[in-house]
């Protein structure tokens, strides 16, 4: 394979790493602003217009902080973990059609690859928590693993629904299929598309460990959970990784459910439309954070196993049947 200059630009600048990282910071700012608005606060104000540079300022500040590795912790794992934490979602984002047309790396099965990377990220959480040699970190990563056992199944099952509708496992193909069909999968085969979207949204909240599923990093219970022993650069990288995860989930939602017939054919509008859709999905997830209290880990598990998993199985079967009949 020969890399052309265009490929290099696409990889490194737009819609590649540079753009993705900027987007991740922007999403953090958006998240903080939306939650602040819900809570009748201002949110970030000082760095840049309306505080838009605050996440970057925080990142730089953390980079300059003292680096502490606790006695008894596994230094190799504690260093590799945060790096992988950034690398994994960045890799996954290359499979997502950020420019609204086609992903940088596109192949049949990229959806499966992304789902696989999501599981790997949670494994990393487990690894960092265990390597920290701290009770709170161990407790946090245990909770994270427990939670993973419950949300991964419905997440994968519901992600298959749009794939079935499109008849492809490639994310770009799924997005394009919606353009050809003329309907976003959110509104396809009503109400199956919508239910599948809601289940996917709930699982994303759990995947991202956001309220109400933030038991793995519940500050008032277990300090910072699995992140307790991370400082300085490590913490900065992990935080960036979390933002990239957030971007990944929001853009997955946009590509799986929110395709439209008009924009993908227009070269300039296509990226703008896709990014707007991603921001809308992120906005919904931020809004949810302001509305509810945290579930205890056992309550979250019960919710998933008694409601979400049966619903997701049902939706999958119903989608297949509806497609066969159509």
């Amino acid at each position: 394979m020969v890399l052309s200059l265009n490929d290099l630009i696409a990889m490194l600048i737009f819609p590649g790493f540079f753009f993705l990282i900027l987007m991740a910071f922007f999403l953090e700012w958006l998240d903080r602003k939306v939650v602040a608005k819900v809570q009748d606060r201002y949110g970030p104000l000082m760095a840049g217009p309306a505080g838009i540079l605050q996440p970057i300022a925080d990142f730089i500040k953390l980079l300059s902080k003292e680096d502490i590795v606790p006695r008894g912790a596994n230094k190799v794992l504690l260093t590799a973990g945060p790096i992988l934490m950034v690398a994994l979602p960045l890799t996954a984002l290359l499979f997502v059609p950020i420019d609204g047309q086609s992903a940088i790396v596109d192949f049949e099965g990229s959806l499966i690859a992304v789902l696989f990377i999501l599981i790997l990220t949670t494994q990393l959480v487990l690894l960092i928590g265990w390597a920290s040699a701290n009770v709170f970190a161990a407790e946090g990563s245990m909770r994270s693993a427990l939670q993973m056992l419950s949300y991964e199944i419905p997440l994968a099952l519901t992600a298959i629904c749009p794939a079935l509708m499109a008849g492809s496992l490639s994310l770009s193909e799924i997005y394009r299929a919606q353009a050809e069909l003329g309907w976003p999968f959110l509104a396809y085969l009503p109400p199956l598309g919508a239910i599948s979207f809601l289940v996917f949204l709930t699982c994303s909240l759990a995947e991202l460990e956001r309220v109400p599923f933030d038991a793995p990093e519940a500050e008032t219970e277990i300090v910072a959970g699995w992140m307790t022993e991370l400082t300085g650069r490590r913490l900065a990288l992990v935080k960036l990784g979390r933002n990239l995860d957030f971007l990944l989930m929001a853009s997955l939602m946009a590509s799986l459910y929110l395709g439209d017939p008009i924009t993908p054919s227009l070269p300039l509008l296509a990226p703008a439309a896709f990014i707007l859709k991603t921001l809308a999905c992120a906005g919904i997830m931020s809004f949810a954070r302001g509305l509810v209290a945290r579930f205890r880990i056992d309550q979250a598990l019960r919710l998933f196993w008694t409601y979400i998993i049966p619903i997701s199985v049902g939706v999958l079967v119903a989608t297949k049947l509806a497609l066969l009949l159509a």
């Binding site: 939650v35 809570q39 009748d40 302001g290 945290r294």
Partner: peptide, 16 residues
């Protein structure tokens, strides 16, 4: 109490 439950919006409202 709301903060302990992870319900930060309620915490902000009550304190306001």
């Amino acid at each position: 109490a709301a903060e302990e439950m992870g319900f930060s919006t309620l915490f902000m409202y009550i304190w306001r």
